[in-house]
C-alpha cells in the first residue's frame, strides 16, 4: 500500500469518528424535537405558560417545572458561588501547601460522588434536618414573608437547592482555582510590593482581573445544576405546582421526566415529557454557550 493511500485511509477513518460526534449531537436534538412535535407544533408559548400538569385529563403545562428548575438552581449557585470562590481563594492563595493539597483532594473526590448518593444522603439526612431544625427557625418569619411559609416536609425546593449546591461546588471551586492559577505570580508581587496585606493583594491582583472568569464559572456550574436529575428527584418533593415557599415541595424539569417517563403510556403524555426534555436541552446548551462566550471574552489577558 502506498503511504499516501494509507494516509488517506487513516484520515478518513479519523474523520468518520468526528462526523459521528457531530451526528450524535444533532440526532439528540432532532430526536427530541420529533418526539416533542405533537406538543410543540402548537407553539411553545402556551406550553411554558400553563401551570397545570395533569396526565389524567391530558393537561400539560411546563410552568411549574420551569419554576422549580430555575429556583432550585438559583439557590444552588447562590450557595455554591461564595463557597467555591472562598475555598478557591483559601486553597490557591492563602493556605500552606500541605493543607491546600488535602483540601483540593477532598473537593476533587466530592466531584466524583455519583448523583444518586447525593440524593440518598439528601433524602435521609439533609431533608429531616431541614424539616426539624432549619425550617422552624423561619416559621415566625413565614407569616409575613411567603418564601419562608411552613410547614416543611423536609423534601422541597430548598432541600433540592442545597443538595445541588454541594454537587456543583467542586465544579465551581475547580474552575475558579484554574483561573487563579493563570494569574502570574508577578501580579501578586506587584501588589505586595506596594505594602499590601495578603488579603489586599488577593483582592487587587487576583480577584479583580478574574471577575469575568468567575462569572463564567458560575454560569457553567448553574448549567450543571439545571440538568441534574437523580439527587433532585429524590429530594424536591415531586409536586407539579408553583409555590412561593422554599419549604414547599416542587418539581424540576429533569425530576419530572425521571418520575413519569417509565410509566407514561399515553402518547400525548410522552410527547409532553419529550417537550420538557427538549426545553431542558435548549436551556442547558444556551447557558453553557453563555458561559463559554464569557470565558472566551475574558481569556488571553496574560502574556
Amino acid at each position: 500500500m502506498s503511504s499516501s493511500l494509507s494516509e488517506k485511509i487513516f484520515r478518513t477513518i479519523l474523520g468518520a469518528f468526528g462526523v459521528f460526534i457531530v451526528l450524535l449531537m444533532f440526532s439528540v436534538a432532532i430526536f427530541l424535537t420529533v418526539g416533542a412535535w405533537p406538543v410543540i407544533r402548537h407553539g411553545l408559548s402556551d406550553f411554558v405558560q400553563t401551570q397545570t400538569w395533569n396526565p389524567v385529563n391530558g393537561q400539560f403545562g411546563a410552568l411549574a417545572v420551569l419554576f422549580g428548575t430555575l429556583v432550585s438552581s438559583s439557590i444552588a449557585i447562590a450557595i455554591a458561588a461564595p463557597l467555591g470562590v472562598g475555598a478557591a481563594i483559601f486553597l490557591k492563595e492563602l493556605a500552606p501547601a500541605r493543607v491546600a493539597s488535602v483540601f483540593s483532594f477532598l473537593i476533587e473526590m466530592l466531584a466524583a460522588v455519583p448523583s444518586v448518593i447525593f440524593g440518598l444522603w439528601g433524602f435521609f439526612v439533609l431533608a429531616p434536618a431541614i424539616r426539624d431544625h432549619v425550617a422552624p427557625i423561619f416559621y415566625p418569619l413565614g407569616e409575613y414573608v411567603p418564601i419562608f411559609r411552613g410547614p416543611s416536609y423536609g423534601v422541597g425546593i430548598l432541600t433540592a437547592g442545597v443538595v445541588l449546591a454541594l454537587m456543583i461546588l467542586p465544579t465551581m471551586a475547580a474552575i475558579v482555582r484554574e483561573i487563579f492559577s493563570a494569574v502570574p505570580q508577578h501580579q501578586r508581587e506587584a501588589a505586595l510590593g506596594l505594602g499590601s496585606t495578603r488579603w489586599e493583594a488577593v483582592r487587587v491582583a487576583v480577584l479583580a482581573p478574574s471577575k469575568p472568569g468567575i462569572l463564567s464559572a458560575a454560569v457553567l456550574a448553574t448549567a450543571r445544576a439545571l440538568g441534574e436529575t437523580m439527587a433532585v428527584t429524590m429530594v424536591i418533593g415531586n409536586r407539579n405546582a408553583v409555590s412561593l415557599s422554599l419549604f414547599d415541595p416542587g418539581q424540576s424539569m429533569a425530576s419530572l421526566i425521571a418520575n413519569e417517563y417509565a410509566e407514561a403510556s399515553d402518547s400525548r403524555h410522552i410527547a409532553a415529557l419529550m417537550a420538557v426534555g427538549l426545553l431542558l436541552l435548549v436551556i442547558s446548551l444556551v447557558v453553557n454557550a453563555v458561559a463559554r462566550i464569557i470565558a472566551k471574552r475574558s481569556a488571553a489577558k496574560w502574556k
Partner: peptide, 8 residues
C-alpha cells in the same frame, strides 16, 4: 519588577 506588570 523585570516585566512591566500593571494591574490589567
Amino acid at each position: 519588577f523585570q516585566k512591566p506588570n500593571p494591574f490589567p
